[in-house]
Design a protein around this nucleic acid. Structure first.
Lengths: 338, 338
DNA sequence: GAGTCGAGGTTATACGTATTACTTGGAGGC
DNA sequence: GCCTCCAAGTAATACGTATAACCTCGACTC
């Protein structure tokens, strides 16, 4: 009563319940099976409730030597994709008594900060998207258990990796467009150094190379609608035979491509077929709705967390890429006979 | 060397440098001005570097009694708006040696979890969006310093509030549409109990009531493109005089409204003017581009963090709503003479 | 009726850090 | 030559928790 300004400790609860601090810890930690009588246990719980007791996490973490908290490092949160990843990871984490703290990679938050300075929380492990490039070096410095999302399985310093089967997605896109009769392609690629984008480029090139008579050009753009607009407009207006199919590295780029097409007086899909990748809400907001590759963000997050749990328990994480699915909508059609 | 499996402590560093643990703490804490010689300090720093020493946050937090970490509670991360809020808050936080941990309100993460169970990090304070309704009760339980974002200043239990001047934004929208000549309105409102949406409804009604001869109907929709599509389609197809202006509670709803209009064969803006609120990237991805209200998300986050810092230091937070700005684009035009 | 055992606790301790209070070996003052 | 004082450290301690080790007392066994 006297010191109501400071938070109550387990000792305060003990005193209020007339027991030792150890008893409080046992009861509240649910480890009192044959150690404390039911009546005393109830007395302790009541005292804790009355005082509004909340255990001091810092003390607990120090004592336990772990925090049951992991960090999820993502690139900018400008689409709902990583929100889904977080949701999946958090769900699995919660099932195992873990918490997930989100760290959106800096980019304007200040002079290239250490993620751990920002998320001061003491951590047990890290899940990092390969797109959050700025943070990677800082992360590598630490010795924390690490799972990499969407990154080169052979080059990740031994860290476990969990990947979406982007290669298959691109293959499906290419096959779909080839089946429609397209032969002249433009690849609108993300201007970001990340394995996940390299895969797209490599796989598209490989798939198209298998079909004689195809051509493919590449334009690079920052991942934003305006950036894509500029790059796509320039590429589409370039001299030479105009491509009839535009394969975009993600849905946002596709949205920019739509605007570029409008500016140039090209109709989607009559004059130009467009594809995306992600299946964001944006994909169906566009007119016509976008043919794209659906990624299961939540499953991605779940698998990432499961892999990290495996690493933490010295088990081998499950292997195998996460399947993706082509969603055909109105933005792709056969090329018009020229 | 012997126990390389466990992380080095400040005592290990001390031993390596041939000094006491206290000296290590002083040097690394930058409090050694007249306490330790320059040469010993350098020796300590070198030892710390060699061992890869990282201070144990849990221990430090316990000792210090605070964590310099605050929690930012937001609703779903499905738009970039709260990413901006985070960016602003994190920037200000970093300038003051604070970290920000993001907690996206549950919604499917599991059985209505306590935010503090998820973000296990020990916290010094909380900034919460009023839209993250599920988390509010849990938060209220704690005695942490609290700043509410976009919530009723008179009803926030004494917590400090930081608000965008949404009322003014809606007034600008209404005035813009009235000036164009519109008299028959449909309000597509978010189906979420939150002060920020109540303000929109109240202010729109008030502004329109001031002009004789205006009518306004209201349709409610969940904040998603599909939800808005359904609700808007039903409302627009309802009997009675068709509204010529559709005021949406946010840009996402507006995107759904576009789709509803297309389905009904209405052209934007010729048959129907549409407005949004947020100015997301989505707004310019739509065709025609959306007339909307620009919110400065980063400034919002900055002000939120500044307010929390003020509360933590027993100062009075700055008052005053954050100004917003109407952005007129192609989705609004005079009504066609009927 | 001595020994055993388990229920129902308590006492003591360590986790790693930051900081306060103390120590010590000179150098300088007079 | 003695006192003072400062530079350069060190020893000790507390933060709040979880848990291992210990204690005590009554009921039962044989």
């Amino acid at each position: 009563m006297a010191r109501s300004s400071t938070r109550p400790t387990s000792r305060d609860v003990a005193q209020a319940a007339g027991v030792s601090q150890a008893a409080v810890s046992l009861v509240l930690g649910d480890k009192w099976r044959g150690r404390v009588s039911e009546t005393t246990a109830e007395r302790v719980r009541e005292a804790a409730r009355d005082l509004g007791y909340r255990p001091n996490l810092a003390a607990r973490n120090l004592r336990l030597g772990h925090t049951r908290t992991v960090l999820l490092v993502v690139p900018a949160l400008t689409t709902e994709f990583f929100a889904g990843v977080y949701t999946g990871a958090a769900r699995v984490a919660a099932d195992h008594g873990f918490g997930v703290v989100l760290y959106p990679s800096p980019e304007g938050i200040g002079p290239a900060r250490d993620p751990f300075a920002s998320a001061q929380a003491a951590l047990d492990g890290v899940i990092a998207s390969s797109m959050a490039a700025d943070a990677l070096t800082a992360i590598r410095g630490d010795q924390l258990p690490l799972v990499m999302l969407d990154s080169d399985p052979s080059g990740s310093l031994g860290a476990a990796t969990v990947n979406l089967d982007i290669a298959d997605g691109i293959r499906q896109v290419a096959t779909h467009l080839l089946d429609l009769g397209h032969r002249h392609f433009l690849h609108l690629a993300a201007d970001v150094p990340s394995w996940t984008f390299e895969v797209r480029a490599r796989e598209l090139a490989a798939r198209l190379a298998a079909v004689p008579g195809t051509t493919v050009r590449t334009a690079h753009a920052p991942i934003s609608i305006d950036g894509a607009l500029t790059a796509a407009e320039a590429a589409l207006a370039a001299p030479g035979p105009r491509p009839t199919a535009l394969v975009c590295d993600d849905d946002k780029l596709a949205a920019g491509a739509y605007k570029a097409a409008r500016r140039l007086g090209l109709r989607v899909p009559d004059d130009l077929s467009v594809t995306g990748l992600d299946d964001l809400a944006l994909a169906t907001a566009l007119d016509p709705e976008l043919t794209t590759v659906r990624l299961d963000a939540e499953l991605f997050g779940e698998r990432g967390m499961q892999a990290l749990l495996a690493v933490l328990e010295d088990r081998t994480p499950d292997a195998g890429d996460i399947p993706v699915e082509l969603v055909v909508r109105g933005s792709t059609a056969p090329p018009r006979p020229s």
